[in-house]
Simulated scan of single mutants.
Amino acid sequence: MQNMGGIFGILGVGCGLYIFYALYKLKSTGDITSSILLPKDVNPKTCKDKDGYIKAVAPKMAILGISTIIYGLMDLCETFVMSTGNFFWIVLVLVFVVLIWFSVTVSKLNKTYF
């Protein structure tokens, strides 16, 4: 695992920060980031209730962002600082569970609001 030199940790932190940037844009300007939230064929301007969609999806984005940043930091710690043992694998499984949960719930929200 150390041959990759922490690339997955950097990607995890970067993805988490991008999710928080998209969340900031969503809450501040109402701009729905289609790369995270919507399928390719859905136009963000066709949302039936933008405020309701933002209120429903924002906490889910925050949870996904936090979990990916935690994973990234754990991977960097595992690679460069010290072994975290089984805790790293628990965090890795948790990130996958959160990612699946996020995908399923956002898909349901998209069907409701678009």
Rank of each mutant, 00 (worst) to 15 (best):
L17K: 01
I54H: 10
S35N: 09
G9K: 00
Q2T: 10
G52L: 01
S34E: 15
K45Q: 15
K108F: 05
L94P: 03
A22G: 12
L38M: 09
L92G: 08
L73M: 06
C15I: 12
K40Q: 14
C47Q: 12
G14N: 11
F114A: 05
T79E: 12
L76T: 04
L11V: 14
G52M: 01
M82F: 06
S107E: 07
I54A: 09
I66M: 07
W101H: 13
V57E: 04
Y113L: 02
V98N: 08
G85H: 00
K25W: 09
I66R: 07
D31F: 11
T68K: 06
L109N: 13
L99S: 14
V104K: 09
M4Q: 09
A58G: 06
L23W: 13
T112Q: 13
I90W: 02
K40A: 15
T29S: 11
I69V: 11
F8G: 15
I90F: 03
M1Q: 10
V13R: 05
I70R: 04
T33F: 07
G14R: 05
K48Y: 05
S103P: 03
V93I: 08
I36N: 14
V98I: 13
N3M: 06
A22K: 07
D75R: 03
M82P: 02
G52I: 00
M1E: 09
L99P: 11
V106S: 14
C77I: 09
G30Q: 07
V95E: 09
L73R: 00
T33I: 03
A56T: 06
G12H: 06
K60C: 04
A56D: 12
N110L: 00
T68E: 11
L23H: 07
F96S: 15
P44F: 04
V98T: 08
L38S: 12
T46S: 14
V93G: 08
L64G: 13
V95G: 13
S83T: 04
N43R: 05
T68Q: 12
D41F: 09
N86G: 09
G52P: 02
G6V: 01
K40P: 08
S34I: 03
M4T: 07
I36P: 06
G5I: 01
Y21P: 05
L23T: 13
S67Y: 02
A58Q: 09
V81C: 07
G9T: 00
L38N: 11
T46R: 11
L92S: 07
T112F: 14
I7R: 10
C47S: 14
G85W: 00
G52E: 05
S34R: 15
D31H: 15
S67L: 02
I100A: 13
I90N: 02
A62T: 07
L17Q: 01
I19Q: 13
L11H: 04
L92T: 15
I69Y: 04
M82Q: 12
F114M: 05
Y18T: 09
